[in-house]
Nucleic acid binder design. Structure first.
Lengths: 129, 129, 129, 129
DNA sequence: GTGGTCTAGACCACT
DNA sequence: GTGGTCTAGACCACC
């Protein structure tokens, strides 16, 4: 359980879908590492302040995608299949980049400028940290 | 008034602050063009489903920053000062890029890959649109 | 009638006294010049939003001091006696300076600094104007 | 809370602005010393006979200027930054002197006379006190 | 108890 | 109609 604050849900979309994205995010960013155990449905439901059924539905979706595997007795685990994780990561990155590009277009910035900005900020904050 | 749906507010931060950001976004993206009249406090309050005082507070902040100018009787206007607008746009872009870079780092992507992704998506969606 | 806005009265002191000071101020600053006619009690009462009796009492006090002279048929006039006006001016200046000195002491400033400040501002604003 | 009587507000200007000036005055004159706790919003509201929100608005402005610092749970404190306090004091003194100079000009007095008056009164009242 | 936020509703000045 | 101000009263988070 890494987040201290309860998450904000967008009321216009199903909560289970948003949980799905949240869990995927935690997995592809390595906060839920490959092969490790996922918190129990009950724990997750408590933490996010939602009904266990809602969490269950999200987890089932992840199982369906193969990103997690539910083992009846010992719990649910993140897959070891690094290709699959890699793919999920790419998908999420793709979506994120699309959103970002749209925003940048809204600012009337061109790709070259944006690229330059990214280079600078990446360096700066890396050396800062 | 371009949005048909009411905005979602993050309950963890003051609404007036989020309105500030929203208005700034509308201005720097040119949806509220320089020199044009901003919707009245009452209209905005109605549209976003908040109290006029809350809108007023946000608008006062924009006034303070010089991005808008309030004329007592005729309404509130976006500044003509394009330098100021330019600066605000840069600030917002900067913040957006920082957020984006942090996300990409979370995905363990390197600048080159990200840049490549952006190039591809920018082209694709440009020809799409 | 030189002031466009109605005056603010300090509720802790009699209004007629405050009117007295106001009229004296107008006379010693030359806004009501020596020898000229003072507005009628009725006009003054209307302008300051007070009862004519209150204005009358203030005017009577000025008459008593000799600063104004009431001529039954033609109205009330500011005295021609420049010595008297000079004296009134000095009194008012004296009071004003006392208040000012107290404030400056509150700021922990010494006379030399204050004098210097005055010299600078006097020059500056004279050449500005 | 040093004043026993409630303050008089000039109805032509916002109360929160006048409170701002009052508080600044109390701070720069050392009645609210650097680093000490400022009375609570509720106390101030009670004392000045205004709504807590109005006091809050004034205090927020002082926070914004850095003259005070608000700590969520323990209260609001005057900054320790003596440079900032010094600067605020200079600003207020400057404004006060400008007002004074304008009045003196209205009395047709010259700088030399005014300076002389100040010297005399300063000495007199110092030995009095 | 502290500061902070938000709402509802009123009033004002200006045109 | 506009923006601006003020009040009254409520709620929250923090400790």
């Amino acid at each position: 359980m890494t987040k201290g604050e309860t998450m904000e849900f967008d009321s216009s979309r199903p909560i289970w879908q948003q949980l799905c994205e949240e869990f995927t995010r935690l997995i592809v960013t390595g906060q839920w590492a490959g092969g490790t155990k996922v918190p129990s449905v009950r724990e997750l439901a408590l933490h996010y302040g939602v009904n266990p059924n809602t969490v269950q539905r999200a987890c089932a979706e992840l199982d369906r995608e193969g990103i997690t595997i539910s083992e009846r007795t010992s719990g649910r685990f993140v897959t070891h299949d690094s290709d699959l994780l890699q793919q999920a990561r790419k998908e999420l990155a793709h979506t994120t980049v699309i959103e970002f590009v749209e925003k940048m277009k809204g600012f009337n910035l061109n790709p070259a400028t944006v690229t330059q900005l990214i280079q600078n900020l990446w360096e700066t904050r890396s050396t800062d940290a």
